[in-house]
Amino acid sequence: KNAAQIVDEALNQGITLFVADNRLQYETSRDNIPEELLNEWKYYRQDLIDFLQQLD
Rank of each mutant, 00 (worst) to 15 (best):
K1W: 04
K1V: 04
K1M: 15
N2A: 09
N2M: 11
N2D: 09
A3N: 02
A3M: 12
A3V: 10
A4I: 05
A4R: 14
A4C: 11
Q5L: 10
Q5C: 08
Q5K: 08
Q5V: 07
Q5F: 05
I6H: 01
I6T: 01
I6L: 11
I6N: 01
V7K: 02
V7A: 03
V7P: 00
D8R: 15
D8P: 01
D8C: 15
D8G: 12
E9M: 06
E9N: 06
E9P: 00
E9K: 05
A10W: 04
A10R: 00
L11G: 05
L11E: 07
N12E: 15
N12W: 11
N12T: 11
N12D: 10
N12P: 02
Q13D: 04
Q13A: 13
Q13V: 08
Q13K: 10
G14Q: 05
G14E: 04
G14S: 04
G14I: 02
G14L: 05
T16P: 02
T16N: 08
T16G: 04
T16I: 15
L17W: 02
L17R: 00
L17G: 02
F18A: 05
F18V: 06
F18K: 08
F18D: 03
V19H: 04
V19E: 03
V19Q: 03
V19G: 02
A20Y: 10
A20S: 12
A20H: 13
A20E: 14
D21P: 00
D21C: 13
D21A: 06
D21T: 03
N22H: 07
N22Y: 07
N22D: 11
N22W: 05
R23D: 15
L24G: 00
L24Y: 01
L24A: 00
L24N: 00
L24R: 00
Q25D: 06
Q25K: 09
Y26R: 01
Y26D: 00
Y26G: 02
E27S: 13
T28P: 12
T28Q: 03
S29T: 13
S29V: 08
S29R: 10
R30S: 08
R30P: 03
R30G: 09
R30D: 07
D31S: 11
D31W: 06
D31L: 10
D31K: 12
D31C: 11
D31N: 12
N32A: 11
N32D: 13
N32F: 14
N32W: 14
N32T: 13
I33G: 01
I33M: 04
I33W: 03
E35I: 11
E35G: 07
E35A: 10
E36V: 10
E36T: 10
E36F: 09
L37F: 07
L37A: 03
L38N: 03
L38C: 09
L38T: 06
L38A: 05
N39K: 12
N39S: 10
N39C: 09
N39R: 11
E40L: 12
E40D: 12
E40P: 01
E40G: 03
W41C: 02
W41I: 13
W41L: 10
W41K: 00
W41S: 01
K42S: 14
Y43L: 14
Y43R: 12
Y43M: 14
Y44I: 03
Y44Q: 04
R45V: 14
R45F: 12
R45P: 01
R45C: 15
R45A: 15
Q46T: 08
Q46M: 08
Q46P: 04
Q46I: 08
D47K: 10
D47E: 15
L48S: 00
I49M: 09
I49G: 00
I49P: 00
D50Y: 10
D50F: 10
D50M: 10
D50V: 10
F51L: 05
L52Y: 02
Q53L: 14
Q53E: 11
Q53I: 13
Q53K: 13
Q54Y: 10
L55R: 14
L55S: 10
D56T: 12
D56H: 13
D56G: 14
D56R: 11
D56Q: 15
D56E: 13
